[in-house]
Design a protein around this nucleic acid. Structure first.
Lengths: 340, 340
DNA sequence: TTGTATGCGTTATCAA
DNA sequence: TTGATAACGCATACAA
């Protein structure tokens, strides 16, 4: 029963249930975690006793004693960014269905921040980690290795994974869109992305853009590449700067989150026909891009699948169903719409 | 040092550090949690030993032993909805700066789901709870009461809070927008919201709309109220249904998340002037609404402030800095733009 | 300032 | 099928 101990209300413990049911605590433990290991009568009495005393198991104690954990730690660069929402949602669903809990933290695109969070998660004895950045401090890598905790990286298809990877290739995706625009006849393809400095995905996308240009024998004009901070306003600014430059592009590939929508809204304001004056392509199929006028050509990324499969392979490993260091490429898809 | 025990790699324990530093485990514990309680020399030796053996404290054991917890549980109706992102981000920032961890789960707008998550969080021995729904099952309330865990509700200014509340009033906000539209001269004000069935906020907003109409002596025509599922497409459908009805409105107040943007895009497609043919107002100042053409009048809600203040009052309570059951009204603001 | 004994609530292990 | 005992890793309380 609830007791007030030193100003702190505590719940009932397993031995309260045991007393109530007239069995030993160990039997309660068994009845709760594997009912088939106790007799029918005991099982019923324990169930009743649990209800009677309002017992809620203490998973801290359970985890400590069993040297197991039912907590997964997730580090994302930012929680403010709705891009991670579908991924987090899917992770959450898989974990919930398997009796795991999700611990989330954001590192603000900082490697040192990520390191601190990883250590905090290890201190919490997480059973596994999911990371969205693909570069990590030496200390972070070392800590993870020593702890022997399974890790899934989800940001991009990294060449030298810590452990497991579930993602798509940002580099391939950017290249595929450039080739798509080229097939449609565009030749002066500009590229706008978030700053690559603190964002691995942006770096990969820039590399994919450059590689595709080279493969297509298109010149890589520095004036056609722009780095902009996130936000609709940045997209608007980018399209203006590119179109008012000396040799404007005939297509702009916006590889930032909502940059493309910002660019389109700016075109609407200025009466610039899309794709008549300039074609627009985006990276990531957020719902909005399908509904604006005109709808924007984009890449559909496996946001939700990354969360689901990532959580699945992590749990498979934790529960011993799979020993390997899998690398899962979930691919991407080009969605051709009216803006190109 | 890491040891392989029964297939499981374990980290170093406090007594490994103690041995290395030539002191007792208790001294290590003190040196780590309150360095001022040990001598200078011991402090240095412990710090070195910690680095030498790569020690990471086991917070499960620490929490169990101290009967404290550094974990906060947050339940949101959905993680897929980017609306909660700024709130979660702010909570995360406050907790991180105070050495707490955030456990997140989504209940899918289900009361039973919420109950299960609350029980799971209590089993994890969370130090506090943040809930975004305002109705809870009897069992959930009972569990929380018995556990004596501080709770902050953030969904709306509830009349009968479980404990503490940090929010704004959805009802007042909806009413304020109706009065604003009335001041601008609109008289046939339609109202579109998400289904109220599983969403307390929608219910409150509908009530606010109705109350404001009554106060303004405007008739409450059933044909002017619509419930739509979330999404841009719903907004588009809603505006069409309202405008093609027998007596179309002169203004539509879209109290759903991105419904207003969907409605505007549909008006763009059909060439309906906004606000010439119909005025549009929204609920919640997502960035997009400022950038579309025309920018949409809306209510600015304290999304981020709710997270920050909510986490702050929760920690104040947990750490004994405040005993009261505070109710914080963070208010709202009407942002008049060109769509009305 | 430091160390010793004890307990946190559960599970592993082994004996009955 | 059940129970007694000993961890799990750390912190509280008290003694030195």
């Amino acid at each position: 029963m609830p007791d007030d101990v030193a100003g702190r209300v505590v719940g009932s413990r397993m031995r309260d249930v045991a007393k109530q049911a007239g069995v030993s605590p160990m039997t309660v433990s068994r009845a709760l975690r594997d009912p088939s290991k106790v007799s029918e009568g005991v099982r019923r009495r324990v169930e009743e006793a649990v209800r009677a005393v309002g017992y809620v198991p203490n998973r801290l104690a359970g985890n400590l004693s069993s040297m197991r954990s039912n907590v997964i730690g997730l580090v994302v660069p930012s929680l403010d960014n709705s891009l991670y929402a579908p991924t987090i949602q899917s992770i959450s669903a898989v974990l919930r269905d398997s009796g795991y809990q999700l611990m989330i933290a954001d590192c603000g695109y900082s490697l040192e921040g990520e390191e601190a969070l990883i250590i905090a998660f290890l201190a919490q004895q997480v059973a596994g980690l999911m990371l969205h950045d693909t570069r990590h401090t030496r200390t972070a890598c070392e800590m993870i290795r020593r702890a022997g905790v399974p890790v899934v990286e989800t940001g991009t298809l990294v060449p030298d994974p810590l452990d497991m990877v579930v993602s798509y290739s940002n580099q391939d995706a950017a290249g595929a869109m450039v080739r798509h625009l080229h097939r449609l006849g565009y030749r002066r393809i500009a590229f706008v992305s978030l700053p690559a400095g603190n964002n691995d995905r942006s770096r990969d996308r820039q590399a994919g853009y450059r590689a595709a240009l080279a493969a297509l024998d298109l010149p890589a004009e520095p004036g056609l590449m722009l780095e902009m901070p996130p936000g609709l306003a940045s997209g608007a600014e980018a399209v203006v700067r590119l179109m008012q430059g000396p040799t404007p592009p005939d297509a702009i590939f916006m590889a930032g989150d909502v940059l493309a929508a910002g660019a389109l809204f700016e075109c609407q304001r200025r009466g610039w026909a899309v794709p008549g004056k300039v074609a627009l392509a985006a990276f990531d199929d957020i719902d909005m891009l399908r509904h604006v006028v005109p709808p924007i050509t984009t890449l559909r990324l496996p946001r939700s699948g990354i969360g689901r499969r990532g959580a699945e392979v992590l749990l498979d490993r934790i529960e011993g169903r799979c020993k390997e260091r899998v690398v899962v490429d979930l691919g991407f898809e080009i969605i051709q719409r009216e803006s190109t």
